[in-house]
């Protein structure tokens, strides 16, 4: 279980372009923050650098566990979920095969995957190939792994985009529950999240 994520003086450069610099942000257990900024401001890059997929040009990202500072590698392998535009679902496999694999791979169990499928109302879709799902159904399938394998930090890139109003509300409840249970959410959004969240502007030379 993570207690905090500490981002200090972070700068990210893509190619020749400096996206932002001097970003400092601390996220503690039970908090949610939304990254707001124009397209291309670096929201996705920030999420990917917290996940360790992208090397920041400057600054540091540290994790704190139950017993003090936590090795970044351990934190990333065991304690965080990254869900981007690309959900890693193979279109030729069935929804259940994909959910099961993603759940087991990130540390959940088959039972928790079934539970999560129920939670996201995927029951009748599980036997279908992923290619036959609609955008919203596919997104729900991707979101289900957040619940299926317990990891405390959720890095979400536009998580709500393809969801309809009812599903947004339902996912809002899931997020609220996660945060209330001591989880953390860092999400890039265009529309505000349906839960209480700090807003962090990204872009230009502005820190937070």
């Amino acid at each position: 279980m993570l207690r905090a994520v500490l981002i200090e003086g972070l700068a990210i450069t893509r190619g020749e372009r400096r996206l932002f610099s001097g970003l400092t942000l601390t996220l503690r257990a039970g908090e949610a923050a939304t990254l707001v900024g124009r397209n291309g401001a670096g929201k996705t890059s920030l999420l990917r650098s917290v996940a360790g997929l992208l090397r920041p040009a400057d600054g540091a990202i540290a994790f704190e566990g139950e017993a003090g500072p936590l090795e970044a590698e351990t934190a990333r392998a065991e304690h965080l979920h990254l869900l981007g535009h690309q959900d890693g679902l193979k279109s030729s496999r069935t929804a259940w095969e994909e959910l099961r694999f993603q759940t087991l791979w990130t540390g959940g169990s088959e039972a928790s995957a079934r539970e999560a499928a129920k939670r996201f109302d995927l029951g009748r879709l599980l036997d279908l190939e992923v290619r036959r799902l609609s955008a919203g159904q596919r997104r729900r399938l991707a979101l289900a792994r957040l619940v299926a394998s317990p990891r405390s930090l959720w890095l979400l890139d536009e998580p709500m985009a393809p969801l309809d109003a009812g599903q947004r509300a339902a996912f809002g409840a899931v997020m609220a529950e996660h945060v209330a249970g001591g989880g953390m959410i860092l999400a890039s959004v265009h529309d505000p999240l349906p839960i209480e969240a700090r807003s962090v502007p990204i872009g230009g030379e502005v820190g937070a």
């Binding site: 996940a51 997929l53 990333r76 690309q86 890693g88 990130t106």
Partner: peptide
């Protein structure tokens, strides 16, 4: 290549 394009590689990188 496919895993890289469809985001699976991200997921694999964050596994155990």
């Amino acid at each position: 290549e496919r895993d890289y394009e469809d985001g699976t590689l991200d997921l694999l990188a964050l596994g155990p």
